[in-house]
Design a protein around this nucleic acid. Structure first.
Lengths: 254, 254
DNA sequence: CGCCAGCTTGAGAGGGCTCAACCCGTGTGG
DNA sequence: CCACACGGGTTGAGCCCTCTCAAGCTGGCG
């Protein structure tokens, strides 16, 4: 059941069998949540950490004018807000995109496992820091890239993140987001998202239909949007190139 | 010297004299850094945590086309990347805006103080989580607000953050950012930033000159851009209203 | 006194938005 | 088996927010 979690943690840090055993023992109560439902709502007092076992969810806020902004996608294995219970109240909501299997892990369970399993602790830390790095890259996306690169970048990111948890086969993965979801993620109108996706399709970069996306030419798509995977801090995957930013290193060489 | 830090932590969590003593004992080597200089650079391997004692700095990335995106402002007392040394390499740079007094606190010092001072640990946690919350709000800013509200929102945020560290007098604070800095922060052109600031000035909301900003009507500015301070998770300040989002609490049901 | 970074303003262009219609697949009910 | 509704995708047309290019201005400093 928590293949996804173990797999994710191991993409950051090698674990022992003992570590894995402790993680498996974690499963307390799996919540089945239907699509388009809140896991936790802005203003609630958090005392648990959320772990998505299966399905997609997102963090979002709704502004006074009804505008929704999505700030993160949560995919299987995402295990975040490592210490949200320190804060007094949620400043955003988490809602499902698809039906999800989720676990609410109480604070005590976290403290217990981290006390005895330093590798797990380290891997969880890694997760939390990567989450923040992803947030920063999304900010770059919204602030510095035009619509077509923005969406291409998102598709690249999801490819790598989902591959790290074994949810990609031959460059295809589940893509249950509506165009309005993408619009609210990218700070675009849904009309423009539609036109932009068409553009990516016409360029032969991606195929997107029936809630599934296929990256037709990964290298070209990455080059197209200037995708640099360093912010995902992945290890043990085919993408884990540890080079620094090409144009910052010596003489455009490397 | 580290008034700023103690003050900041205490805006989140009450400390004992003993805690304060431990914090004061932290001062190892204060770095004097001139303006417009990198504290740490993308690609470097981090093994210390940065604390700004005085001056302003920022996190940023530079894209292949030379476009700079600023992702955070660091003001006196900002003490962040609590555990960046877990990651292998920096995925962004930190550079000063003004001359700064900064401290690089080695990993060991962090681990030592947090081992014995749970209140401090908790306050540091709080800091890290607030940092992430600010990042999320910036994403909302870029994704969902027009230029004028965006900049107004930034000015509101800085007012509250700086006030929490005692750097605001009669709604004025130091504002050493160039219009290009703001442009690279807000995903706008510097020309448009200029026009937008003029607009805010003409509306009588702010006065901005000689590297100092004065908020002429705080309540009106907050209303203007729909500012909700909940994401800063401040305590012990005149802004710490703990209510949830007004338009979510009543009316639209629960 | 002259340079230079940063600020200001004008004019024209374009990326993305809004409004609005239409299409399509699916589910529901008669 | 067909009628209809409905969410989501697609397309067109016109507009406007913001961008780019370009010039002129201002103030601090060597």
């Amino acid at each position: 059941m928590q293949d996804a979690l173990t797999r994710k943690l191991e993409s950051f840090e090698e674990l022992t069998n003992e570590d894995r055993g402790a993680l498996n023992a974690l499963t307390l109560k799996v919540r089945q949540v239907r699509a388009r439902t809140d896991l936790i709502h802005e203003g609630d007092a958090p005392d648990t950490v959320h772990l998505i076992l299966d399905g997609y969810a997102c963090r979002y806020k709704v502004l006074a004018d009804g505008q929704r902004q999505i700030m993160a996608y949560l995919v299987p294995g995402d295990f975040c807000d490592l210490n949200v219970f320190i804060l007094d109240q949620m400043d955003h909501s988490i809602g499902t995109i698809t039906a999800c299997q989720a676990v609410d892990i109480p604070r005590q369970a976290i403290e217990a496992i981290t006390a005895d399993h330093p590798r797990v602790t380290r891997a969880l830390w890694w997760c939390a820091l990567v989450d923040e790095a992803v947030l920063r890259e999304w900010l770059v996306n919204l602030g510095s890239r035009p619509a077509n690169h923005r969406i291409a970048h998102l598709l690249c990111e999801l490819l790598l993140r989902l591959e790290a948890v074994g949810r990609v086969t031959s460059n295809s993965y589940d893509f249950p987001f509506t165009q309005s979801d993408i619009a609210d993620t990218m700070g675009l109108s849904n009309v423009h998202v539609n036109r932009t996706i068409r553009e990516l399709r016409e360029l032969g970069l991606v195929a997107l239909k029936h809630r599934t996306v296929t990256i037709l030419d990964v290298e070209r798509l990455k080059a197209y949007c200037g995708f640099n995977p360093n912010y995902l801090h992945l290890r043990n995957t085919r993408w884990s190139n540890r080079r620094s930013v090409p144009w910052l290193s010596s003489g455009h060489g490397g």
